[in-house]
Design a protein around this nucleic acid. Structure first.
Lengths: 235, 235
DNA sequence: CGCTGGTTTGATTTCCTTCAATGACGGTGG
DNA sequence: CCACCGTCATTGAAGGAAATCAAACCAGCG
């Protein structure tokens, strides 16, 4: 039975980091795990807070982000159900969260005890390898983000983002944006106005159509060539 | 005796990832390890190459970087002696290098066999933990780079860089830049001209003095406040 | 000494942010 | 069910930061 207040053993095993646990370990981790709900807009943790738990998003949506002194927000990642986050804090000398985390939608999370997990990893080489895999993948994603910010202009970043989303969903003509345009702008490190202008330009070019949060890709090849740097020449 | 052609067991143990190996494992890893020299300007590997080795820089200096279609170069990291790199490729499903690597100075490296290392990690939970720690630290560095690119303007990035270098060296009044200004510009994702102008402005403000590659920090507090966002108001 | 590549300085251009105003949603409570 | 409010989205105009272009200078090194 799927009790919403406590993580089930099945759920635990879907969690990639813990999928190989035996009965005893499962039991211990479950005992220390806690379900937390966060209202829309509410913070789960702040940048610099001691990281006593690592998290699995069960429902809802959250953002991991940094803030500038001026209050500008750069989103590092948007967290959707099934994603875990903050694993890298486990192995840092001083265990603090490197970013803020707040809910974009009302969300429900499972929080695993950090000390407890480290103990588990000590006995489980397989789990270590899975975590190494996860962190490595994330590291390469970060390198891609750095390249994107450093070498691509705003329109290129937008085109790239759309193409990535399109492919991630297995290339359906139409799909729904994962989040509001304001948040996507924060993810791409552009102003909402700039994102809006980019999308309008792509629409004018006939590359895509847009209906509020729904995007229809009319010309994937064209989008790809634009993402590669072909200037979207406005007439 | 320090044979320059083959890594010694002592050297292997300085390598943080392998410092806990026992005699047998040391022996195996050493057998498969290979010393490679790279001339200034020469590539060690390209973005997308199969990653059959991970590397330890013994002497010289290298850059890890990405290239834009237009040929612009964004440096992800500058590698100095004692630093290892490319570890994260070990645990990726498709083992390829995510960046280019080229020598800034003539360099000598030890290349460890990837399959061999993975075997070692299977038997050595301690080594796994050390690697998890290394990757976690690098991940947080990447997050800092992303924040820097997204939320700080060029002058702020320069000030931050100088402050970091100053502190990393334990705050000597004068220190030598780790690399040419062209490469530092590539690291900070600004044009060399912009870096030059930033440094000139800081000099004009009396924050620092500069003599070719040597920087003297006259006013660390001022530099810090500039890095925090205090506008360097040119009169 | 005389290259070659790195650095500085100035002038111009481009891109993106900022500012401002209007319009469209979508959730909430009457 | 509809009116209201706040947030999000769009569009235009103006300003500013950094890139680009161009040229002169400098430094290290064969």
């Amino acid at each position: 039975m799927n009790n919403i207040r406590h993580p089930t053993r099945d759920e635990l095993h879907q969690f990639p980091l813990l999928s190989g646990l035996d009965e005893t370990e499962s039991q211990r981790v479950l005992t220390k795990a806690r379900v937390v709900t966060v209202a829309r807009g509410e913070h789960l943790f702040h940048h610099g807070d001691p990281a006593r738990r690592i998290w699995l998003c069960r429902t809802g949506q959250l953002k991991l982000f940094r803030l500038s002194d001026a209050g500008q927000e750069k989103i590092i990642a948007i967290i959707n159900p099934g994603r875990s986050f903050a694993e890298a804090t486990l192995f840092m000398p001083q265990r603090v969260y490197p970013v803020h985390c707040a809910a974009i939608k009302p969300s429900e999370l499972v929080g695993f005890d950090a000390d407890d997990l480290v103990k588990t990893f000590h006995n489980d080489a397989e789990a270590c390898f899975r975590l190494l895999g996860t962190l490595s993948r994330r590291m390469h994603e970060k390198i891609n983000q750095i390249e994107s910010l450093a070498l691509q202009n705003a329109h290129l970043r937008v085109a790239h983002y759309l193409l990535d989303e399109y492919r991630r969903r297995d290339e359906p003509k139409t799909f729904r944006l994962e989040s509001s345009k304001k948040h996507i702008a924060g993810l791409l490190a552009v102003q909402p106005e700039t994102l809006s202008r980019s999308l309008t330009a792509l629409q004018r070019e006939g590359v895509l159509d847009m209906d509020t949060r729904y995007i229809t890709i009319n010309d994937p090849e064209r989008l790809e060539s634009i993402a590669r740097g072909a200037l979207a020449t406005p007439h």
